[in-house]
Amino acid sequence: MSQSCSEKLIHIIVSSILEERIEEILERSGVDGFTSFDVRGSGSSGLQSGHLEGESNVMFMVVVPDRIYPVLVDNLNQLMRRGHHMMVFSSDVAVITPSKCMNDASS
């Protein structure tokens, strides 16, 4: 039976203007890798069609161990308190790649 470990998957949907800022926050929080891609959609900030710089969103996917999770959430909250519109949500995931298991205990 293959081994896996439990970690948190965080999705961050944010204006592409803040892309570098989010990368800095991830680095400062101790995250050593992420995936990001351009996304479209609509919500409280109106239509985000991705056609012009001011209406382009980017989505980050980050998998973090339990010890980094609260640090990252706190740092993201600081940015949101400044008024930046962001959609952040997390879920529990099972990481299968052995070298990516950062939690101390694996199941």
């Binding site: 204006s15 803040l18 109106g46 012009l52 001011g54 400044r82 008024g83 519109h85």
Partner: peptide
């Protein structure tokens, strides 16, 4: 719009766009 999204994040982009 990008400058305002960065500098005045409290404003709603749907209004000015």
């Amino acid at each position: 719009p990008p400058a305002m999204r960065y500098g005045v994040p409290e404003a709603n982009p749907s209004y000015y766009l």
